[in-house]
């Protein structure tokens, strides 16, 4: 049974239809990357899976549990299965790095143990203990992403969602983050769902790739087939061509 199963999911905001019947399967321990242009509903999809947004129609099950209709402690238990790396990091400005990383760990462990756990997780993403007492505003973009990654895996979640993990980073730092994601997914045996429009990132992270366009999954297959999919939408996106079935306005 897939870890995450999405069937016929619809979501609209007012008159704007964002998801128009999404079907998707993510296998246990697998790494699926959803590609698609800006504004195609990728972030909405993962917020629906996480239970932060309610779907209008359709079904999302995680480990066999239907997400729609979850409330209170049942919703909290569902969300506790996930870790998430947000696009901008979403680190808490008012807290030092070590408190950010250990935020979801049980407080009864005490400050010394929480700090030690934070430093251990920072080491996993290649950061030394010297950054533990810094504030997020004192870190570079790449370091913030690493800290956010350490925070996302600190509680060893079964599933981690990566929202545009390389956005805003230079190509070398983006590749470092990609390598870290691959290592963490492999070493911690995590199920990973990544959304991105960065094809270099998708090629590195993914076991399988799906493409979201106009609110639907227009293609899904193994990473190795991305260049020979035979799908016109995928070909245009992968090769970054302005001409093709995906129409973009050239003038605002």
């Amino acid at each position: 049974m897939p870890a995450i199963r999405v069937r016929g999911v619809h979501k609209r905001f007012g008159p704007k239809v964002v998801l128009d019947g999404v079907d998707l399967d993510i296998g246990d321990g697998g790494s699926l990357v959803v590609i698609g242009g800006s504004g195609t509903g990728k972030s909405v999809l993962i917020k629906c899976i996480l239970g932060l947004l309610a779907v209008d129609r359709g079904s999302i099950t995680v480990d066999g549990v239907e997400v729609a209709g979850l409330r209170g402690s049942a919703l909290a238990a569902h969300q506790a299965k996930f870790g998430m790396l947000f696009q901008g990091g979403a680190l808490f400005d008012s807290l030092p790095v070590w408190r950010n990383v250990s935020f979801a760990l049980p407080r009864r462990d005490g400050s010394a143990r929480l700090r030690a756990a934070a430093i251990d997780n920072l080491a996993r993403v290649g950061l030394g203990p010297d950054v533990a007492d810094l504030r997020p505003s004192e870190l570079s973009g790449g370091m913030q992403k690493r800290v956010a990654l350490a925070r996302a895996i600190a509680v060893r979640p079964a599933i981690v969602l990566f929202d545009e993990p390389t956005t805003g980073l230079d190509p070398i730092m983006a590749d470092v983050i990609n390598d870290l994601i691959v290592e963490l997914v492999r070493d911690l045996k995590i199920t990973a769902l990544t959304i991105t429009h960065d094809m270099a990132s998708a090629r590195k992270i993914a076991d399988a790739i799906a493409m979201l366009y106009a609110g639907r999954i227009v293609w899904q297959g193994p990473r190795a087939m991305i260049d020979t999919s035979g799908n016109a939408y995928v070909d245009q996106f992968v090769n970054g061509r302005a001409d093709g079935p995906i129409k973009m306005l050239k003038t605002a």
């Binding site: 917020k47 996480l50 909290a76 969300q79 680190l91 979801a104 996302a152 509680v155």
Partner: peptide
């Protein structure tokens, strides 16, 4: 997205 992050951090 810090408020959404809180939700994902239990």
């Amino acid at each position: 997205e810090q408020i959404d992050a809180l939700t994902t951090l239990r």
